[in-house]
Nucleic acid binder design. Structure first.
Lengths: 332, 332
DNA sequence: CTGAAAGCGCTAACAC
DNA sequence: GTGTTAGCGCTTTCAG
């Protein structure tokens, strides 16, 4: 490995002159500067960022902690995070927790030892207390997608409003009996569910419990809960699925039962995953600005790191919007 | 930040004693060991891995370089890589190149400065020469999914055989006119294409050029090329799409044209992405062991790193297999 | 402008 | 067993 010393020796100058040439060229006399730069090229000198990090006390690295990398929302958030980080010279280390608080804790500790400058995290369920500890130690940290601890910066979406608007949209299309397929009892599903309830109430529609199914997680969950709904035989003309994956499972169950989407049953998803547009019919959904959320979280974190002090925690709430495709029929 | 020195001072021992207690406890007398360990806890001392890396000359970090993180194959490979790395105490840094050789080069240089111990790479197209340079500098590196340089370790799949078996499978089901929807002119698509040609030849079937469409990339590519095929009106009963995404686009075009899969046209994909199983009908496909490939690449790289010397380059070729679902009809 | 020197936090000889 | 010491490669005072 070529070091500053090697360059210095070869040029007959001191290490500090080489260092200066690289970090602040104007502070070095021209003839030396040229010679140094030339030697740097000749020897193909590359900075050792580990040494630099040790010396400077910062690594220009941020950690992005996500539940897993297979579920399609997370790579989108990741892309957003990386985009901003890259523009500002930060490297991002990605790790996944399998949505397990214990693993999350281990990962965070490991990365702290590696001296990452800050964390962006999609917190595992029930990992609130551990996050609070980090915050106490003044570790820069931003939550994204899920806000487990309101006293820590966060970039989220108004799930309640999203659920409310989704339901209102179905109602506006003339649907009166709207089933709900909700994900596991998690932070954001809860908000979407409550939005659904409120919209029904505000429109003086009956809340029909048999039409509400929880724990419809992912494609499989949506599929099975939809089958159950169909088997039970209560009447409904539309389904609000609180995730796109769930919606896709529901469509599968409906199609297999010999019914048509949207002619017999309308489906509305949530998330706007890429795959929603790959289906026939294209999935109508509530678009979640996952890319922007990642970008924005990255922006916020890097700001905190660069200010070098604790800022007043801030929650950025992004807007959802309805993306109309072909799975919702107009009943009016 | 709490350092070894802080612990040492508080215990009244030397820094080295604390260091030893942590790395090789038996080499320290019991009373001191206990006291040190207790103080470590009390002060919540955490190793500074940056300092350790600088001193030891290795970071226990590997870089995984992929074209992008949104396309569903890559997260699967990533999961495999992380699994093995984690078991062996390595952290993985993930970066994407957008399949651009220039970006790839930049990223690699940046990560080398960070002193990663090695690279696993899904090389961008035409990035062969740069890889060779790395190899020359004795940087541990393993290619996965794509082998741009045969002189560097690689974990790949026999794409030729995969394409051959795919086509043979359709022939065995009684199909004689088999269209091909091939991805961009990339390394692995080429192999799949050649396998297709060879299988037709070996079965004395006509190679009908109008039925062969290249550049059918991703869902959109598959969709448009399929539309074109349908418009042109040549007869065929089956389509071999060289990627699942392409197959999904093709199904969309077929369905929109009022035809049925598989009754009117059979479809066979390649990759076995999760989303293939979400559709109705479920996509029959050539399963690509992406998870295992990632795992195996990680294993190989870490072996190279730990041996600390250059091993004879080795190419591990994994097997594909046919995953029968519902998009291929039996014509016999 | 430039060089010498201290030191980031750690490990690993080397003496005792 | 244990402490002292010399660095890993870099940046950054501090003198000159």
């Amino acid at each position: 490995m070529v070091t500053l010393r090697d360059v210095a020796n070869k040029c007959g100058v001191s290490i500090s002159t080489v260092s200066r040439t690289l970090s602040n060229p104007k502070s070095v006399r021209e003839d030396k500067r040229i010679k140094v730069l030339q030697t740097v090229n000749e020897l193909n000198y590359q900075t050792n960022d580990i040494a630099k990090s040790l010396r400077k006390g910062k690594t220009n690295t941020i950690a992005l902690i996500i539940p897993n990398i297979i579920l399609p929302v997370f790579p989108v958030v990741t892309t957003g995070v990386q985009a901003f980080a890259k523009e500002h010279g930060f490297t991002v280390i990605l790790s996944n927790t399998d949505d397990d608080a214990e693993q999350q804790k281990e990962i965070i500790e490991k990365l702290r030892k590696r001296m990452v400058d800050g964390f962006i995290i999609i917190p595992a369920e029930n990992s609130g207390t551990h996050l609070k500890q980090l915050k106490k130690q003044n570790v820069p940290i931003v939550q994204v997608l899920r806000r487990m601890d309101p006293s820590i910066d966060a970039v989220i979406v108004d799930n309640f409003k999203g659920g409310y608007n989704a339901t209102q949209y179905l109602i506006d299309k003339g649907h009166k009996e709207i089933a709900l397929l909700n994900g596991a009892k998690m932070y954001f599903y809860k908000g979407r569910f409550e939005g659904y309830l409120q919209a029904l109430k505000d429109n003086n529609l009956l809340i029909n419990n048999p039409l509400i199914k929880h724990d419809a997680n992912g494609v499989d969950g949506g599929y099975h809960k939809m089958q159950q709904l169909l088997r039970e035989g209560y009447h409904f003309t539309a389904v609000f699925a609180t995730s796109d994956l769930c919606a896709i499972g529901a469509i599968k169950a409906i199609t297999q039962a010999g019914l048509r989407v949207p002619e017999d049953i309308s489906i509305l998803g949530f998330d706007n995953l890429d795959i929603g547009s790959m289906f026939i019919p294209g999935l109508t959904t509530i678009a979640h600005p996952a890319l922007e959320m990642g970008y924005s979280a990255s922006q916020r974190l890097i700001k905190i790191i660069q200010e070098g002090r604790i800022l007043e925690p801030e929650t950025i709430v992004m807007k959802t919007k309805i993306l109309e495709r072909e799975t919702v029929a107009n009943k009016i």
